[in-house]
Computed example of a mutant assay.
Amino acid sequence: MSHKTLLRAGPLWQGAVGPYGPLEPAGSDGLALPAGFAGRVVARSGHKVAGLTWHAAPDGGACFPDGAGWIYVSNSELPLLGGASALRFGADGSVADAYRILSGTDLNRAGGATPWHTWLSCELGHRGRVFECDPYGRRAARPRLAMGRFRHEAAACDPDRQVVYLTEGEADGCFYRFRPGDWGDLTEGVLEVLCESGRWRPVPSPAALLHAARHQVDDARHFDGGEGCHFADGVCYFTTKGDSGLWAYDAQTSTLERVCDGVRAITASPSGDLYVARDAMRIDVITPDRTITPFLALDGHDRSALKGPAFSPDGSRLYFSSQLGTAGDPSDGHTFEVAGPFRP
């Protein structure tokens, strides 16, 4: 059963034990994981990693293939000094390099990866922009202004319909999609907003010089602070931080469902399981039979939030960050890796 099918299969069932068994006691790093899994901190805010001082307030992230290894990209939710950094891993999982891919931008939040292996880093600031970044560090980042000027949170690409879904971090924010003129080139295109009717309507002025984008279409549907966003198996999942909801937009049927509560960020493994970061400093797995169960818990980070979950391209490692660490401060962010027998 795919996740597209499970959306119409009834409510989720909260299970006590997931597909990997119960959580074992937390180790010295605070991670409680199922048997057979191991975790480690791969970067800490203010500390050197492969010669780079890792950024504060790590937020959204994604992984990209890199020969026999891979790259994990992470945003920084700092005002004016945000941007994004990258960790390059060798085939054996060691950190081979670290470098900046975007600097001098404002409150970079969830973002999203593209099928052509670029990173969309989204600014949450007033009249925020989307920057298309090169995770390999070869090309300079470029703003994609046709994607609108608003408090951007996350982006998720739908290669079937050749659109990019976008969330908005306002208490009355909207859910958008961007239709580029040429798929793979985000320089020009049409910004549309989801309406109460279920239809998409063009935003008349994406630059929003006189009126905010979310107020330009009368029938626009509003959400309580859009946050994370992920596209998988024909469905765009997104979260709303104001009411901690997880939503699922079925792109084929143009239907929207609220799936569950208490979710802040989301990703999917190559097997199709959904992994959701919860408010209670844990990550749960949602299986295709609609069971939601704990996968990991992080002790000692009670004043923080889990951000940027993403799987390595082969599905063997999960990355995420505790944005404020044990100190509850942006300067104490921890970026983790969990490795183990994830389902193929």
Results as ranks from 00 to 15, higher is better:
residue 4 K to A: 15
residue 8 R to T: 14
residue 17 V to Q: 09
residue 24 E to W: 12
residue 29 D to P: 08
residue 34 P to V: 01
residue 38 A to S: 13
residue 40 R to M: 09
residue 48 K to F: 15
residue 48 K to T: 15
residue 51 G to F: 13
residue 65 P to N: 11
residue 66 D to H: 06
residue 79 P to Q: 05
residue 82 G to E: 00
residue 83 G to S: 01
residue 84 A to F: 06
residue 88 R to T: 06
residue 93 G to Y: 02
residue 96 A to Q: 11
residue 102 L to W: 00
residue 102 L to Q: 04
residue 105 T to N: 04
residue 106 D to Y: 13
residue 107 L to V: 04
residue 107 L to M: 07
residue 118 T to P: 00
residue 121 S to W: 07
residue 122 C to Q: 00
residue 122 C to K: 09
residue 126 H to T: 10
residue 128 G to Y: 03
residue 130 V to E: 10
residue 131 F to V: 02
residue 135 P to L: 11
residue 136 Y to T: 07
residue 138 R to E: 13
residue 140 A to L: 08
residue 144 R to T: 06
residue 147 M to N: 03
residue 148 G to S: 10
residue 156 A to L: 01
residue 164 V to Y: 03
residue 171 A to R: 15
residue 172 D to W: 11
residue 173 G to V: 06
residue 174 C to M: 07
residue 175 F to R: 00
residue 181 G to K: 14
residue 186 L to Q: 06
residue 190 V to R: 01
residue 195 C to T: 12
residue 196 E to H: 11
residue 199 R to Q: 13
residue 200 W to V: 01
residue 200 W to G: 03
residue 200 W to Y: 01
residue 202 P to G: 03
residue 205 S to D: 13
residue 206 P to N: 02
residue 217 V to Y: 02
residue 227 E to K: 12
residue 239 T to Q: 10
residue 240 T to S: 14
residue 240 T to M: 09
residue 248 A to G: 09
residue 249 Y to L: 00
residue 259 V to A: 08
residue 259 V to R: 07
residue 270 P to G: 10
residue 273 D to T: 09
residue 280 A to F: 10
residue 282 R to L: 07
residue 290 R to I: 01
residue 294 P to W: 01
residue 296 L to E: 07
residue 296 L to Y: 09
residue 300 G to I: 15
residue 300 G to C: 09
residue 305 A to D: 12
residue 309 P to D: 10
residue 310 A to L: 02
residue 323 Q to L: 11
residue 324 L to A: 14
residue 325 G to A: 00
residue 332 D to F: 06
residue 335 T to A: 13
residue 336 F to S: 10
residue 343 R to C: 00
